[in-house]
Amino acid sequence: MEILKQRPSRNPKEVLTFVLLVSLSSVTLLTTLGVILSLVGDVVQFFRRVPLLEFLLAPEWTPLFAEPRYGIAPLIAGTFLVTAIALLVAIPLGLSLAIYLAEYASGSTRPRIKGTLELFEGIPTVVFGYFALLFVTPLLQWAIPDLNIFNPLSAGLVMGFAIIPYVSNVAADAMESVPRSIREAAYALGARPYEVALRVVFPAAISGIIAAIILATSRAIGETMIVAIAAGQRPTLTLDPRETIATMTSYIVQAATGDQPTGSTAFYALFAVGFTLFLLTLLLNILAQWVVERYRERYE
């Protein structure tokens, strides 16, 4: 019969469409490849000139000095400091909101709260940086007199608010996916709403909650404009939140907007820092996915 001979996979239009879609989507793969290749080339250049040990162990990051030092430690310390402060804000606030969203918000308030959070997420981080530098820092200086104008404290605090949605959305999703039957079991045993939330739902969703925190950490580490504006651009090996510091991201901004001749060691250093940042955030993202997979509760 004629009809049976028409194999759909042979139809040229069908094949063409499929090929087109595959080639479009291959751009996403090429992007990853591009990120890695473009960084790696310059990173190799960098490590031809600066020994890895110096990069890892030297206590100073001063590419533009007459005798430049290329120790990543101050940038890591600065990044760590800002991230820690941000998480100190974002974790308690974000998780409270997540619990409210998952356990208390009624069907009509939930989308409204989520909408408000989306709004927060949609505010460009330059705006938060501006707010940190011009509003929060003066306020803090009034309380802490020897606070630098550029300081990780105010940048971290504001960043903490900026990443609340990342914590609360993912954590709320995790808690909402705990089956209703489990909550009912707890209520039937005479648990109060807060006991259900804290003793049953929260622990049951713990893998998703941890993943939310890891993802927020990754966001905080990669966040650029708030720190570039408010935390300063002076690499300092310190954990004192009153000092001016530089993070990996703020250093990249500083170096890229300054005039470093292409091909200089300082120029390649930019990519070494960028690659470190890339690896760190990638590892955190993979870790988050692994935690979710590994520790997910499998209900019926």
Binding site: G34, I221, G274
Partner: peptide
């Protein structure tokens, strides 16, 4: 997997990609 990881790459790293490439 690739998309999930791309979504987590900080935007400044895209900037470096743009600069280099």
């Amino acid at each position: 997997v690739n998309l999930r990881n791309l979504a987590g790459v900080p935007s400044i790293v895209y900037g470096l990609l743009g600069l280099a490439l």
